[in-house]
Design a protein around this nucleic acid. Structure first.
Lengths: 372, 372
DNA sequence: ACTCTCCATGTAATCGATTCCAATCAGGGC
DNA sequence: GCCCTGATTGGAATCGATTACATGGAGAGT
């Protein structure tokens, strides 16, 4: 592979002139420039990014450590991050933590060793040594989605509290009184926040949240299934279950089906995180949608601001309730829905019903959709 | 950030001794070793991977360019690749081409510039200049999922021909005679292969494949929707549609629903690529499952073999038909299904029905599943 | 015509590691 | 007691770029 020396020799100039030409330095004569460019062409020269990084101490690379690539929410977050980063001249290395703290640490370590310019983390657990080390290190860090209390680091995330309250109101309006939740790990902010928002929503309606109605999950499908199994084994099972992420909702749905029960006739189900598939599940799932793309873009902009020495502020965007049929709402007239995934304006909005029609709130009771 | 020089100074030895200690070179005295290790500890020294790569000409990094991260098939492929690579001491940089050739080229270029040790590509289009350049370059390349005819590069992929034939037999057995397909771009092997397998399956049953029953798609949901729209506008619409990937199936489902039609009563639907969500769509979708994990692992092993100078062979694993209800099969008794995604043994197997029970082949006619 | 600028260019240091080669030192064999 | 061998160790080259500094020459100003 040709190096800058080869190019210099071929063009009859010094390596300095080659470097200057390629980096657009002003004082290079037209003659030298054309000869260099010709040599570059002839030798198919490409600068060695490794050598360049060593010298300039910049890799033009961002690290992104996410909790679980198989979760469509994080996948689309990752896509948005990569998109925005590329637009701004950066590459992204994704590390998948699979919700395992030690894997998360492994990735942070590796990324730091590679001298990435900045790090985006969605911490799988609250207080891993490596996360703290990263924050103390000179490498700029921005947290996405989940954050760590007590650290002075910009956080880009969605606030789901209003949407969770909307959901509780929705369930209450449909006549549900025994509401349960399948949570994520308490060590994640998204885990604990969603429970507390749910609890405060319930208390606004004077409803209790008994311990037995709190299923401990880990954001993976299997844990959602187990939690639902336990709910169903209760002497008095809940009438509605809120899963704190989409994979646990999938697992819960599995468990419900395994028991031969129907949604929403026998039990209502709703999820945090909206994904395109929820439109086509049986039944379509009511969910809380996060502005994924906006979050990813904002996170990258904040990180690059810090890399370039500009100040970066935390960003919080609202999440939004998307009502479908899984809680007992009468089926809206079938109509096309955009395929680009859950639409999500950056401005706050109240709960929306899928079809865009007005939402007949308060129409309680099971929905007899089985009559065609 | 502490460098090897700082460590050497702190330990009172030369940089050579530090390097030898850290790389496990035998001739380092116990005294020097402990002092070096203590200095490393004290300074929280971490070797600079960039400098190391420059010197050793190894980055211990693989590049993976996939066609679309938002497609669950590629996501799980990427996960398997990362998993296996990590186990073997490599990191992975993922480039998402979004099915756009120019983006694919951008990523290949960037990865090559970073001097990754090897490249895994699932080519978004047949003949991009950068793919060819990569193949000619000294960097080992292995193709995954899709391949490029006429290139001497190892290919790791699934062969779906048998499964497609099984699918046609399944549809035929259920009484379907007007079968249509929504294909991927003809420039991808997976695009053209799936059509030709479908066509040959049809001809085995003496069925035609009229031009109007071939919908041109691009592996994205929106194209699946458009193709289905066109089918439904035909004077004689098909009775069963086979989508060549899961996203186009999602789009097709959208279109069907928008027209107020039901699956499978009004039209049957099947897809290539099985994903966990297909169990819970309405109705559960019959699909052809690829052994994603195995593919990812095999691809990494082949690539690393080439990196280490060993020969690598192409690998072809069988895909498998998973029967659910979307083609009119009577509903199997509800039962739990493993959550780990479509189970996929590496050994060939005939079509399976979801519940694990034997499959009542030949039970033709639309399935009146609406009676609970 | 002389000097002062300024432009174009080259030389060489530098980034942080690895590694070849030579030097030093201790111990064993004679 | 001397030399040889082998274990440790340090010095310095190297990877491929960027860039500070030095230099040479051309053109302008007086």
């Amino acid at each position: 592979m040709a190096s800058i020396k080869d190019v210099a020799a071929h063009a009859g100039v010094s390596v300095a002139t080659v470097s200057r030409t390629l980096n657009g330095h002003p004082s290079v004569s037209p003659g030298a420039r054309t000869r260099v460019l010709a040599a570059v062409e002839a030798l198919e020269y490409r600068p060695n990014a490794v050598a360049r990084s060593l010298r300039t101490d910049q890799t033009h690379t961002l690290g992104l450590v996410i909790s679980d690539v198989l979760n469509p929410y994080f996948t689309s977050l990752a896509r948005a991050v990569e998109e925005e980063a590329r637009a701004l001249g950066y590459s992204v290395i994704i590390g998948n933590a699979d919700e395992r703290p030690e894997l998360q640490d492994h990735h942070i370590r590796t990324l730091l060793d590679r001298r990435i310019d900045g790090l985006l983390v969605s911490p799988a657990d609250g207080r891993s040594p490596l996360t703290l080390e990263a924050v103390r290190s000179p490498t700029p860090v921005v947290l996405v989605d989940r954050w760590l209390p007590g650290l002075d680091v910009p956080v880009v995330r969605a606030d789901g509290r209003v949407a969770v309250h909307d959901l509780v109101a929705h369930l209450h309006g449909l006549g549900h009184r025994r509401l349960a939740i399948i949570t994520g790990p308490a060590s994640t902010t998204t885990g604990s926040e969603r429970v507390s928002a749910f609890r405060s929503g319930l208390s606004a309606f004077g409803l209790p949240l008994p311990e037995a109605y709190i299923g401990q999950g880990d954001f993976q499908a299997e844990s959602g299934r187990r939690a639902m199994e336990r709910f169903l084994a209760l002497p008095e099972p809940p009438g509605a279950v809120f899963a704190a992420d989409n994979l646990m909702a999938l697992g819960a749905l599995d468990a419900i089906r395994a028991h031969g029960l129907r949604v929403p006739e026998d039990i209502a189900l709703a999820a945090f995180d909206d994904i395109p598939w929820f439109v086509h599940t049986d039944p379509p799932l009511t969910a809380i949608a996060q502005p994924t793309d906006e979050l990813g873009r904002a996170a990258v902009r904040a990180l690059i601001a810090r890399i370039e020495g500009r100040p970066a502020r935390s960003v919080t965007l609202p999440a939004r309730l998307v009502v479908r049929r899984s809680c007992g709402e009468p089926a809206p007239p079938a109509g096309p829905e955009p395929l680009t995934g859950p639409a999500m304006p950056a401005v706050p909005a109240g709960p929306v019903s899928e079809s865009g029609g007005t939402q007949p709130h308060g129409t309680a009771g099971p929905d007899p959709r089985s009559t065609p």
